[in-house]
Design a protein around this nucleic acid. Structure first.
Length: 104
DNA sequence: ATGATGACTTAAG
DNA sequence: TCTTAAGCCATCA
């Protein structure tokens, strides 16, 4: 039963990403049951209420190839800082997915 | 039922 | 590395 709306399912999936690991929008989409809904995932995260930022580590969600999406509300710059603070390594401007990405 | 929007993705040049 | 173009999805007017 779908008692939970799409964005709620997205928040739950994102909240389970381990510290120091990252997932792509596409992977989140698969987790919530929409294999091709990466764009919808972006929509959901954009709707993330401020009071949920504690529980939902949105900064651990990156675009394909480990790139950071420039349209992030608080800014890709802030996202990068948060990731670095968790020990996530970067290769140039992208997250080192081979090291921090999860296989799904 | 449309059409528009967006923190996307992949392929191609 | 950047720009297009086309595809996919949930939500809202």
């Amino acid at each position: 039963m779908k008692t939970h709306s799409f964005h709620t399912r997205v928040y739950e999936a994102v909240s389970q990403i381990p510290l120091g690991r990252v997932l792509t929008y596409g992977q989140i989409a698969r987790l919530v049951g929409s294999p091709h809904g990466a764009r919808a995932v972006g929509w959901a995260l954009r709707q993330l209420p401020p009071h949920l930022e504690r529980r939902v580590p949105w900064h651990r969600v990156v675009a394909s190839g480990g790139k950071l999406s420039p349209r992030v509300g608080v800014g890709a710059k802030e996202q990068r800082l948060r990731l670095l603070a968790e020990g996530v390594r970067f290769q140039g401007s992208s997250v080192d997915l081979a090291r921090h990405g999860l296989k799904l």
